[in-house]
């Protein structure tokens, strides 16, 4: 329990986070059509993973902590997925109001 990471690891993660921030700002200025948002989200997820795995130490923690940390995101996907499943299928029937 309570793994002690080296300072060097923390500095490297910090550096990577700064680079990714610059990357996300730069890519936002390029018109990539529908791909802008997925790329921005991919960068954000990468940054979040760096923080979760190293700053928060999940990489060195128990499997239980990993499951708990993942569960919140899984439940978010349930919320987003099912709710959008409603909105995105509303037009399918072709009957107004249904």
């Amino acid at each position: 329990m309570s793994h002690v990471s080296s300072k060097g690891l923390y500095y490297s993660v910090f550096f990577a986070l700064c680079v990714l921030t610059v990357v996300t700002v730069a890519i936002a200025r390029v018109d990539l059509g529908v791909m802008n948002t997925p790329i921005a989200l991919a960068v954000a997820v990468s940054k979040a993973m760096l923080v979760i795995l190293f700053f928060m130490g999940v990489k060195y923690n128990t499997p239980l902590t990993k499951v708990v940390a993942a569960s919140g995101f899984v439940w978010l996907i349930i919320l987003f997925g099912i709710t959008m499943g409603d909105y995105l299928t509303r037009g399918w029937l072709g009957v107004p109001g249904r």
């Binding site: 996300t24 936002a28 390029v30 948002t37 921005a40 954000a44």
Partner: peptide, 13 residues
Amino acid sequence: IFLFPLLYLIGKH
């Protein structure tokens, strides 16, 4: 980290 791109950057292109 999520709020920044989703709120500030989506219209920049």
